[in-house]
């Protein structure tokens, strides 16, 4: 039983990272109406942009409590978020906007994003190489909870940050004019224009916010595991599983979808070979979509 609880805890940690990534993915899908296949590779770019500060420049900073990383991670995350936000905005201005103005369908847009993802991955590999890296050397000793359950301080941080971000995203979407305009544009972009909303600006803002979330998810993934140029790409499938489970365009659903993906795949290793665990969320996904084709919560930002 303790084994299962320990696996659920790991699942919640992995699921938080999936959820963080899926929130960004579902936000861009809701407004842009196409699946951004560059999302995973953008996560990898984010994790390595943070590495510039704490690794390449060596500004690790003093320790933050018992976390494995120091204060240098704050400017590192800021750089990562700004960098991926700019990548997304730049991609819209140079690629997606042109495709949109020519009436390209969602398939063309998604394939363009796939190409962009391959480019980003190649650039990351060229600059930082193929060998895995870590933000901090040494070990991050786990805390022992009652029942001999083990959780690392970093992992508390990841789950806590995910909850804070989810709440922040909720406030943005439901309490600010920008967020409401994003939901309006997601509902009906033509009507948004008629209502006086500059939808191109809303799209760019959405890309920027989605990019910042993507980078954050990438950094958390690297803190939990390690930095690899293809870590984000390999993360794409669980991200999509979480996004679809939660109902495309629904941030709360994305978080819950992420947790479901994380927990089911970790708990499954109690009975099946851990090498097979990435397939488990898909079995679940198929089962859920057979019952609820629009995901657990339905759709729309």
């Amino acid at each position: 039983m303790i084994d299962i609880i320990q696996l659920v805890i790991i699942g919640i940690i992995v699921g938080s990272i999936v959820g963080l990534g899926a929130m960004g993915l579902t936000l861009s899908y809701g407004v842009m109406k196409f699946a951004n296949f560059a999302h995973g590779d953008s996560m990898a770019l984010g994790m390595f942009l943070a590495f510039i500060v704490v690794g390449d420049l060596g500004w690790a900073g003093g320790n933050i409590g018992r976390l494995s990383f120091g204060w240098g991670m704050i400017p590192a995350i800021a750089l990562a978020m700004a960098g991926v936000a700019m990548l997304n905005v730049g991609a819209d201005l140079t690629i997606y906007r042109r495709l949109r103005s020519r009436g390209a369908g969602i398939i063309a847009m998604a394939i363009a994003s796939l190409g962009l993802g391959i480019m980003v991955r190649a650039v990351v590999q060229m600059i930082w190489g193929s060998a895995p890296q870590r933000y901090a050397t040494g070990i991050n000793p786990a805390l022992t909870l009652p029942g001999d359950l083990k959780v690392k301080p970093d992992q508390f941080f990841i789950v806590g940050l995910t909850l804070v971000v989810a709440f922040g995203l909720y406030l943005l979407l439901y309490r600010t004019q920008l967020g409401k305009a994003m939901r309006a544009t997601s509902d009906n972009p033509e009507l948004a224009e008629i209502a006086g909303i500059d939808t191109q600006r809303i799209r760019l803002s959405t890309w920027a916010i989605s990019g910042a979330l993507t980078a954050l998810a990438g950094v958390m993934l690297a803190i939990q595991a390690q930095l690899r140029f293809n870590a984000g790409f390999e993360f794409l499938l669980p991200l999509f599983a979480a996004t679809i489970l939660g109902g495309i365009g629904n941030p709360w659903g994305a978080l819950l979808g992420g947790l479901i993906v994380g927990v089911t795949q970790e708990v499954s290793t109690e009975w099946i070979d851990p090498g097979l665990k990435p397939g488990v969320p898909f079995v679940l996904l198929i089962l859920i979509l057979l019952v609820r084709p629009r995901g657990i919560f339905g759709s729309s930002v």
Binding site: K180, D187, N188, I197
Partner: peptide, 16 residues
């Protein structure tokens, strides 16, 4: 109208 927005939010969008 924006179907997933509330009445108040629909009006707020008109006043964007």
């Amino acid at each position: 109208v924006f179907p997933s927005l509330s009445i108040r939010e629909n009006l707020e969008m008109g006043g964007y």
